[in-house]
């Protein structure tokens, strides 16, 4: 194994650890505000995983949209709604045992599929600059989904304002 490969492994395990640790804290933290901050850490770990996978543009979008927009939106929502959430109330609801069992069973099933399937792996060779290609693809092959996504965002924007208005 070359040094570069070893470093890739190390980076993968560091970012996977950040991701999973952050995720577990999101599920278990008592204070919702702290859980939201741990969720930001988890998103950062996912961005690192994208870097390891050589998808730099997606990693940048992850940091900008998830950490910069969605997580901040969630922090705002927590601050607007927290008053009546008493700190003594348990963070889990009455069905947490069933929920945990379902999540664990699903993980076992997914792990069986992931490890048992013979994936047709043929890693792509990345050549040239990727970001201009993404732009060209979005404006040619995927122009219809691209425009529909903009329409969806507009509808979500108007809908959110209408729903949240006093």
């Amino acid at each position: 194994m070359t040094t570069e490969q070893a470093l890739t492994f190390v980076a993968f395990f560091i970012f996977a650890g950040i991701t999973l640790f952050g995720g577990i804290l999101v599920a278990t933290m008592r204070n919702v505000m702290h859980a939201a901050l741990c969720m930001m850490m988890c998103f950062f770990g996912v961005a690192g995983i994208y870097i390891v996978l050589e998808a730099g543009f997606i990693a940048a979008v992850q940091v900008l949209v998830y950490i910069g927009a969605i997580a901040v939106l969630i922090l705002f929502a927590i601050m607007l709604t927290r008053g009546l959430m008493s700190k003594t109330l348990a963070p889990a609801n009455s069905q947490w045992i069933a929920g945990g069992a379902i999540a664990l069973l699903l993980f076992i099933a997914l792990a069986f599929v992931a490890l048992g399937t013979n994936w047709p792996v043929s890693p792509i060779q990345i050549t040239g600059d990727m970001i201009p290609k993404i732009g060209v693809e979005l404006m040619t092959t995927y122009v219809l989904p691209f425009e529909i996504a903009s329409l969806l965002l507009l509808a979500a924007l108007i809908g959110a304002i209408v729903i949240a208005r006093e």
Binding site: A27, A92, A98, G99, A103
Partner: peptide, 11 residues
């Protein structure tokens, strides 16, 4: 699965 557990079990 962590996300699923969070969605199912949080209050």
């Amino acid at each position: 699965c962590i996300g699923l557990f969070t969605a199912l079990a949080r209050r």
